[in-house]
Amino acid sequence: MTTDISDEELVARFPGEPITHDNAAHYRGRLRRQLLLNRCDDCGRWHAPPKPVCPDCWSWRVAAQPVSGDGEIFMAIFLHRGPAVPGVDYSTPYPVVTVELAEQEGLRFTSTVVGADNAAIRIGAPVRLAWIERNGVPLPVFELKESV
């Protein structure tokens, strides 16, 4: 799967996603199964969601860089209903988690946890990055470390 695709092709690969100049690198990274978040080249601070300017030092020298995907659950909710999405079954509450990533305190990414009973998904649980396919493209998700 190539990631040297035009902006138009990128938008076509992720229909319905709000792809912008600021987050296109994130979506290209997903095609390589690599979670990319923005980091300032001047002060070294990570930040998400992507912005063209570092919110800490106001530098314009920000670039999408890979993160490990290791972290711990900062917040968890369980959806009993929601929009119809391929691969999402609300007959069992669907977990949505925000993970604080190991790279930096306060750096968080929201997705879901796969391969675990909902009772095991709790705040503070250690997780690692995993990938699933949804709508024909890679989606970053998390797995509990103790269940892997």
Rank of each mutant, 00 (worst) to 15 (best):
A64L: 01
A64N: 00
L37G: 04
D22M: 00
P50Q: 04
R30C: 14
P55A: 04
L37V: 07
D56Q: 11
D41M: 07
G44A: 09
D41W: 08
K51V: 11
D56W: 12
P52Q: 07
C40D: 04
L31Y: 10
W58H: 12
C54W: 06
C43E: 03
L36F: 05
R45L: 07
V53I: 15
V53Y: 09
A48Y: 15
N23P: 04
Q65A: 13
H21F: 06
R33W: 10
L37S: 05
C54D: 01
H21I: 09
D70C: 13
L37R: 02
L35Y: 13
R33D: 05
D42P: 05
D56A: 05
Q65E: 13
A63V: 09
R28L: 13
W58G: 06
D22E: 14
V62F: 04
R39V: 08
P55S: 09
P66D: 09
D22L: 03
P55T: 10
P52N: 12
W58F: 14
W60M: 05
P55C: 07
D42M: 13
S59L: 05
D70H: 15
T20P: 00
D56V: 11
P52F: 04
P55N: 01
P49S: 06
D56R: 14
D41T: 07
G71H: 01
G69C: 02
D70I: 12
G44Q: 03
L37D: 03
